[in-house]
Design a protein around this nucleic acid. Structure first.
Lengths: 131, 131
DNA sequence: CAGTATCCTGGGGGATACTG
DNA sequence: CAGTATCCCCCAGGATACTG
């Protein structure tokens, strides 16, 4: 982002929304939706967590991916990281104000989809027919 | 989804949220966040669109990926598809009620992130330092 | 116009082993 | 405990060509 592009330029001028590859918001969302980002953000909603606590809340995530995802989210200012230099070391991750806002939206969507799970289940059944 | 699992079981029993791989909501979200899903849903928010209209609103998407993504979203009951057997054929895609709900949450997040783009821009700058 | 079919490559991401 | 380092595989997804 060398030249300071006017960020408001990404708003739709005539109501016709176009999603450009270099829209900063698209880039952030691409990070969030990079397979694990959303689950890490949702996992941190309740309270800050330590590394393995996060891992234990997200079935299927590897330590490598968790570490990598956390680093990206920290770089994006969605998550903060606090190191306690005790022995053994304690590292805590939590949502920044920015991250909380994002997580609230994601959480709202998640809860809503979960509430409509029946729709998805129906879809699964009818897919079995066409297979 | 052969045996009818109680979907409410996925709600956190003790407030400790865990995201299981076979949680239906997680599966739907994994579809949505499958690189292009979110952008297709957001692109359809304003009004139903034809195939190439959708493509033109999402920079960087290939026709193959658009077609594939649309099929998944239709199967998940997030998007409907209407075929007009004219010559040339007209195919229109739009959000179902289910899809609208999901898109509203995604749109809220997108707008909110866009409004906070400055946070991300700062993050980019400080990353340049550490590189 | 609205797609499929085919081929092919990059990097997302898993497994395992190692470190402060 | 909280990670890195390394190796390696697989498939998401791009490019191109073809079809109803």
């Amino acid at each position: 982002m060398p030249e300071g592009k006017p960020l408001t330029a990404w708003a739709p001028p005539d109501g016709r929304e176009v999603f450009h590859t270099n829209c900063p918001a698209r880039q952030v969302i691409d990070h969030i939706t990079n397979r694990w980002g959303i689950w890490v953000l949702l996992g941190l909603r309740e309270r800050p967590l330590r590394f393995f606590e996060v891992r234990d809340r997200i079935e299927g995530i590897s330590e490598k991916m968790l570490s990598q995802t956390l680093r990206t989210l920290v770089a994006d200012r969605l998550v903060w990281r606090k190191v306690e230099s005790t022995v053994p070391p304690q590292v805590t991750y939590g949502l920044t104000e920015f991250g909380e806002g994002a997580a609230d939206h994601l959480g709202g969507m998640f809860d809503w989809i979960r509430g409509n799970a029946a729709v998805f289940t129906e879809a699964c059944e009818s897919e079995r027919q066409t297979d």
